[in-house]
Design a protein around this nucleic acid. Structure first.
Lengths: 216, 216
DNA sequence: ATTATCTATAGATCTATAGATAATGC
DNA sequence: ATTATCTATAGATCTATAGATAATGC
């Protein structure tokens, strides 16, 4: 009976409510306040408490979804911005360096990321699978020399978190310079010669300003 | 009027209750369950709810103390075990390699550590100040070449956490080998030549079995 | 006599839902 | 007519304390 209907006003209204909840959850995540009553979440989202249960079974589920969507958004952005880079070592480095700049550019998203900690590496979506893929491709292409892929992934995640943590703790620190320094150190850990690592980490990055206007 | 009395039975009973609470909190921390009713904590500690408030004002305070005491215990152990090492690079590496082995040897304590995440680096006690001191001493002695002490500290903490996270996720992974591999990578990051880093990370470690019988 | 602990519970807070209202579809 | 949202609230849960009991000191 193929009842394919174009999404109508009802669906859009429903989607708006859901988005309001996820947005509110992301704002709370950014403040590290996940231990709040559902009523506070719905007030922040400016909807009635009752509507909460039309969309999520519990606070935990909402926060899980909120984290997932936030990181998936950034991950897919990194995909698009590195899609036409041939050298997988460069693609990896560009993603890392841009994610380093994320901490200042989108502090709320950065805090969502930091709040995840190393749980990050166990997610099926978001940044981890992409980083893992980048590293594997670079190893297969003979660009990285890494005998332990899992260790490499978790060290990468740790570097992202360490960098973000430091940038928030020290508001005056230069994010670009620190990010590139850490990226260089990671590339060297993955077997690239020092000068090659330095070269890669001083390449131009895509203009994130342009991107924000397209998708953010 | 100088009422110095030897701690009597009352004080010991009081201390026992407090310790029971802190122990219970550490067990809960190890399971990541800090969001439990106070009643559950006191039942786990096998004391009445009322007694809780004789010792702590809130759950949060109890958990803070529980983390602090756990990490301070391990930190002071590392101090003692590296006290008579002359080369600060070696002292740093020994502490790091032993802490890597902590994840298998004391999984509960390890989970307390992992639960802290990079907050770790902002604590006035525990591992961070010791690691910072080690790194600074090594830099001053010309053993490490590190231009950014804060970055070095946070990368060290991240490496500890990454290693622990991986060891828990992969129970079959060789903890000693992984720890030494990461330690070597850190030493190289801090400017030591590859062969020197490898040598340091294959030195004998103090016998932790003996120590456990003395203090644990 | 003093101090810590225990039991029992008042009052605060939170979750989840029932039933009413509003928006859209047909 | 249908579906989403809203308001109001019953019932569950949790915190923090009052008052009773038990342990120790003198």
């Amino acid at each position: 009976m193929g009842e394919r209907t174009a999404p109508g006003r009802v669906d859009r209204r429903r989607a708006r409510t859901r988005t309001a909840l996820v947005d509110a959850a992301q704002r709370l995540l950014a403040e590290g306040r996940t231990d709040v009553p559902i009523l506070e979440i719905t007030e922040l989202a400016d909807i009635g408490v009752g509507s909460f249960y039309n969309h999520f079974d519990s606070k935990e589920e909402l926060f899980r979804v909120a984290v997932e969507e936030a990181l998936e958004w950034w991950g897919s952005l990194m995909d698009r911005l590195t899609a036409d880079i041939d050298d997988p070592a460069v693609a990896f480095a560009q993603s890392f360096r841009m994610t380093g700049r994320l901490h200042r550019r989108h502090p709320e998203l950065s805090r969502v990321l930091l709040g995840q900690g190393l749980e990050l590496t166990r997610s099926e979506s978001g940044l981890a699978p992409r980083a893992f893929q980048d590293i594997r491709t670079a190893v297969d292409a003979g660009r990285f020399e890494v005998e332990d892929l899992d260790l490499a992934l978790v060290m990468t995640a740790a570097a992202v978190l360490a960098l973000g943590s430091l940038l928030h703790a020290q508001p005056d620190r230069d994010d670009a310079q620190s990010a590139d320094l850490v990226a260089r150190s990671l590339l060297r850990q993955f077997g690239l010669p020092a000068d090659e690592a330095a070269r890669i980490c001083s390449l131009d990055l895509p203009d994130l300003d342009l991107v924000d206007t397209l998708v953010g």
